[in-house]
């Protein structure tokens, strides 16, 4: 996708966000107990955002917007995989407990960089270490499985 298209799409997304906030802000009162109500500031801001995003769209349509270089297919794939693995960790955290979910997450990331047994070893050591630091030392209530880890 070329840069102009990306700029146009992103400006349309910002316009959509502005409209969404604008519509929502109309639900709130504009008069409060001591002065302006909870709707005033969001309404003004979303209106300003709408004007700004339209100006952004005009710049984008003229092809004058400057944006950074986009990742190649390989880079994009790496980024997507990381996001998928993070989502898997979130899904597994409660049913498996933080140590096992951590091992799975880290192993998925390390398996391409190290041999499988090294990757598994590092994943296990890091997961257990973080469990001890957060659960035992910092007394954070991390999710645990039936076995207590």
């Amino acid at each position: 996708m070329d840069k102009k298209k990306i700029s146009i799409i992103s400006s349309i997304v910002v316009i959509a966000i502005a409209v969404m906030f604008l519509v929502y802000s109309l639900q709130y009162s504009f008069v409060g107990i001591i002065g302006p109500g909870p709707g005033v500031m969001p309404f003004c801001l979303s209106l300003i955002l709408l004007v700004l995003s339209v100006s952004y769209l005009i710049t984008a349509l003229r092809g004058k917007d400057s944006i950074g270089s986009m990742p190649d297919k390989k880079g994009l794939f790496s980024i997507l995989m990381i996001l998928v693995y993070m989502a898997i960790y979130v899904v597994l955290l409660k049913p498996l407990g933080s140590v096992l979910a951590g091992i799975v997450f880290l192993f998925l990331l390390y398996r391409n960089s190290y041999r499988w047994y090294t990757a598994l070893g590092i994943s296990a050591i890091v997961s257990v270490f973080l469990f001890v630091v957060f659960r035992v030392l910092l007394e954070v209530n991390l999710p645990v499985n039936a076995l207590g880890f």
């Binding site: 993070m86 933080s98 951590g102 880290l106 990331l109 960089s113 957060f134 991390l142």
Partner: peptide
Amino acid sequence: KLLYPIILIVCMIGIYSVGR
């Protein structure tokens, strides 16, 4: 390649500990 997975998991555990 060794460091970034650790940073990611520390971020996620850290955030979980904020609001559980």
